[in-house]
Design a protein around this nucleic acid. Structure first.
Lengths: 195, 195
DNA sequence: GTTCAGTTATATCGCTCCGATACATCGGGC
DNA sequence: GCCCGATGTATCGGAGCGATATAACTGAAC
């Protein structure tokens, strides 16, 4: 079975197209998932080590860069996917379980949608949507029940939180609509190499 | 100096008005900060222990509930603020540094606004606002620079993140406006009896 | 009236993550 | 020549989380 945590998945995804070393992985991930979700070295390097141990990636002493000049390049360790890593990635990309629409995992899964087939994309979006509407009900339930007992600021915080989730749902509805209308037109294939 | 972490502050705040035991603390916190921000026991109990060690709270073997019926209530440990804890709380409530408008801290600080004086409220809101607009610029900068090199889904994720932050800023602007217009009318006092 | 599920309640273990920090090297500007 | 900011690898301590164990009470089904 081997469960794949979010960080591992994100790294598998980012190494899909080229080998990179730690520093680059961090920058790319930061750029793709937004400047929030910082990802510190304190998580990155241990995770890379775990992945090497698990045989998902391979470390190599950086030959990659051009003809270049003679001698002592600084220590750089480029990581690339092994076959096991590549098949783990596609296995993971084909799945659409609860772990795909959790708060922290959804962004990563979404950022890999270009390599996910249309049916799975739709299932993930719908799963995320239903997860959020559960939450919606919880919160608005709570809001009604707290008439007294809470001051204006706390209530405002709740109201604002509710609104945020509502907008998130609207966003998902738009995306789902798009996916649905794209279906039927084209072949529904896996989108793959656009850049 | 003694830095107070977010969780500690939240607990100080929730114990301000009555002693509670662990389970209740968790429920209240969950209700006040929204059902997100779960707070697991694995964080709560260690934190309570730290706070007892630091002399901020006191454990007592639960006499609190009514006349009640005779004998063996199950083990329940009620925690209440010590004088040190109470003064730490008001000290913390009077401050408005960067730690008040960090992502994770802001919600907690905001939920305690009813016990924060008007000037500090305003400073915190403004601090949070400027933190978010920094981020705004970063992200939109990044969005412009990534024309190529990113697929449609990744771009959409960025766009959506940007929009969220924009709305957060609008929300803050509304709150700041309210605070400003309330000033001048009333006495600007601290909304409550600080000891 | 007994069983069974759910809530109240405290507590710990292992693991991961983060922030801070320590190194070293590179490319440029002054 | 010299410092500064980016590039790059790495670790440490502390804090949080998810899962889990334990146990007593509550109430409804049967």
């Amino acid at each position: 079975m081997a469960k794949t945590d979010v960080l591992t998945l994100a790294i598998l995804g980012i190494l899909r197209d080229q080998p990179l070393h730690g520093y680059q992985i961090r920058k790319r991930l930061g750029a793709e998932l937004g400047p929030f979700r910082a990802l510190s070295y304190g998580s990155l390097y241990p995770c890379l080590r775990r992945m090497v141990e698990a045989g998902l990636i391979e470390a190599s002493g950086d030959e990659a860069n051009g003809p270049s000049h003679a001698s002592s390049r600084r220590a750089r360790i480029a990581y690339s996917l092994t076959d096991a890593g590549r098949s783990r990635l596609s296995e993971e990309l084909a799945s659409a379980g609860a772990s795909s629409w959790d708060d922290d995992a959804f962004d990563v899964r979404f950022s890999l949608f270009a390599h996910t087939d249309a049916a799975t994309r739709l299932r993930i979006l719908e799963g995320r949507r239903s997860r959020l509407s559960e939450r919606l009900e919880e919160v608005s339930e709570g809001l009604k029940r707290m008439h007294e007992r809470h001051d204006a600021y706390t209530a405002e915080l709740q109201r604002h939180g509710l609104e945020q989730v509502e907008r998130e749902v609207e966003w998902l509805d738009r995306l789902i609509e798009n996916e649905r209308s794209a279906r039927g037109g084209e072949n529904n294939g896996s989108a793959s190499a656009d850049h």
